[in-house]
Each structure stands twice: as C-alpha cells, then as structure tokens.
C-alpha cells in the first residue's frame, strides 16, 4: 500500500513506472527499491528458502539478512531491499516456488 501523502514528509515521489513480477505488470514509483515496489502492490512473499522452501520476504531492509533475494533481469540472488526499481524491469521470485504447506508457510 502506497502512502499517498505522508503526514510528515508529504509527497516524495512523482514519477510512476511499470515493472514486472513473475511476468505480471505492476506499478511503482521511481526512486523506490524493488522490495518496496513489491510491498506497495501487496506482495510480501519474495521467494522461498533454499533448503525447506519456506516463504521469505523483507526482514532487515538494510542489505544484511539476505531474506529479500529476488531474480532481476535474469540475475539471481539480488537484494531487493538495496536495488532501485526501474521502468520495464523484470523481477522474478527467488528460486522455484512450489506450493509447500507446513505450519510456518
């Protein structure tokens, strides 16, 4: 969800752009990170963990935890919290995305 007018900071971004997540076109604001662009569209699961295929998303927003990995324009394991979204960018969720159940999923 985008905050249209921030109570303290007002409006910060002006230009709307289009990017793709798993082939689906989505809107974002120029200047946002890929992680924020996804969360603005209500997408919080960015991929799955390596071993148990559990859902993963933004955790530290600071480039330290690596939970926010996505694939960008074919390059895998990119930190979505530390990369700016660009017009026409192709973002894919991290690794295969099987429908695994389990209590934490």
């Amino acid at each position: 969800m985008q905050i249209k007018k921030h109570p303290i900071l007002g409006e910060k971004f002006t230009e709307e752009i289009t990017f793709y997540f798993n082939e689906k076109p989505l809107k974002a604001m120029k200047g946002q990170t890929v992680a924020a662009a996804l969360m603005r569209n209500g997408i919080r699961k960015f991929g799955v963990s390596r071993k148990l295929f559990k859902a993963r998303g933004l955790y530290c927003a600071n480039g330290r935890c690596t939970s926010c990995y996505v694939t960008i324009n074919g390059l895998d394991h990119v930190l979505s919290c530390s990369t700016l979204v660009e017009d026409g960018m192709n973002v894919h969720s991290n690794e295969s995305d099987p429908d695994v159940g389990g209590i934490y999923n």
């Binding site: 963990s49 390596r50 071993k51 148990l52 955790y59 690596t66 934490y104």
Partner: peptide, 9 residues
C-alpha cells in the same frame, strides 16, 4: 523454531 534463517537450523 528456526534460529539460523539462511541455513534453516
């Protein structure tokens, strides 16, 4: 409960 998120230990 997972302690190490990356290696899922």
């Amino acid at each position: 409960t997972i302690v190490c998120r990356c290696e899922e230990i």
